[in-house]
Nucleic acid binder design. Structure first.
Lengths: 200, 200
DNA sequence: TAATTTTGCTAACAGTGTTAACTTTTTTTA
DNA sequence: TAAAAAAAGTTAACACTGTTAGCAAAATTA
């Protein structure tokens, strides 16, 4: 019977509209001011309807976090696939990661809990593990290519990731004007010294 | 007249008790669940009294942020003063910073807005500038001591800080068990490669 | 058509930050 | 010392927040 199908579609449509409305609100006013009531108003439904599709607000935010990591994985994969030389790959990954953070600022803030709650349970998301795997393989190739067989891929990955994230998050909270050039330089400097560090 | 003095002392006493009660609550339940009403209850005063001493909640949190940076500056200064060799200084700073973050976890979370709001206006705090200055001078000494005169102290400072902060914040949200050994290794690896990177 | 399930809404609960208006206490003035 | 002025503190509200119990209306099934 097609009735169930239609109901399924309708339910899915509401779910989508919740996500769309939420995203629209976030772009206008940020995660901090996103509320269930505002979402309900935006989709022309009453508040409890939202709880039919998401267990609570945290679950709704988790959905966006996952989506964010999916997007990040996409751009990183693309960056890796665009180059064959491991060095160039890592360089491209760094730039892609950087660019993602600032072109999808809202996503990045949510993903890393910058100015948010939501610290818990982020790590259990499968997309995060995929993300780690992605970078790890890139790192392994770089190490294999370089002479330094002692370099530990996972170790280097952590440093790589930490530096990028640290740089981004420090700059995201409180932006001095004229910092963008500096950031560009820091990023360049880091990538170069990171790669030479592995080669040495 | 001594009346004004006494009133001043009483006012100061209330202010202190607000800060003490807040800190006690934070240690029990974290920043996220700290509320004006809970503070008021803890100090046996009504809610508006708190607004006589702090313009709003953000101002109260800012006080703790400043205090946190003061403490951080102290331990970093001590780390620097304990060594004469610039290399050893930087190494000590890294460890001290690291240790501060995890032994004063609540402070660090507030200072860097991990799982919080409060992103704005952090950078304008004088203690933050002092902190930057502290690290910058350490970095300059390291560079002067090494042959590499081209290294730009501010650039290296940014990398240094970013990596540390990135490492810490990534680990603070969602802690896998058994990660502590890895962290120790990553930190060691980073410090060594950072220093050799400057010397090269 | 009648019974049943689904769908959606109203209204409430327990919180949050913040503040206007009032009362009580203390200090100053006459 | 008694009245007036100033200060200190309180109550109660406003406008929000996430969340949910209970009810009305609509759609589906028998």
């Amino acid at each position: 019977m097609g009735i169930c199908d239609r109901k399924q579609r309708q339910k899915e449509a509401i779910r989508s509209s919740i996500l769309e409305a939420s995203w629209s609100l976030v772009q206008k006013e940020g995660w901090q001011s996103l509320s269930i009531r505002k979402i309900a108003e935006a989709i022309d439904y009453s508040v409890p309807v939202i709880y039919d599709h998401f267990e609570n607000k945290e679950a709704l935010l988790l959905e966006f976090t996952r989506h964010g990591f999916q997007k990040l994985n996409e751009v990183l994969t693309h960056a890796i696939q665009s180059h064959s030389d491991p060095e160039e790959q890592i360089e491209a990954v760094a730039y892609a990661y950087w660019q993602f953070a600032f072109t999808h600022k809202e996503y990045y803030q949510l993903m890393y809990g910058l100015g948010m709650q939501s610290c818990e349970m982020v790590r259990s998301i499968p997309e995060v593990q995929q993300f780690t795997q992605l970078l790890l393989e890139s790192m392994k190739r770089l190490i294999d290519n370089a002479g330094n067989k002692e370099a530990h891929a996972f170790l280097k990955l952590q440093t790589f990731w930490s530096t990028l994230h640290g740089l981004i998050s420090i700059n995201m909270m409180g932006k001095d004007p004229g910092r963008e050039e500096l950031n560009e330089m820091v990023l360049k400097d880091f990538i170069r010294s990171f790669i030479t560090g592995i080669k040495a």
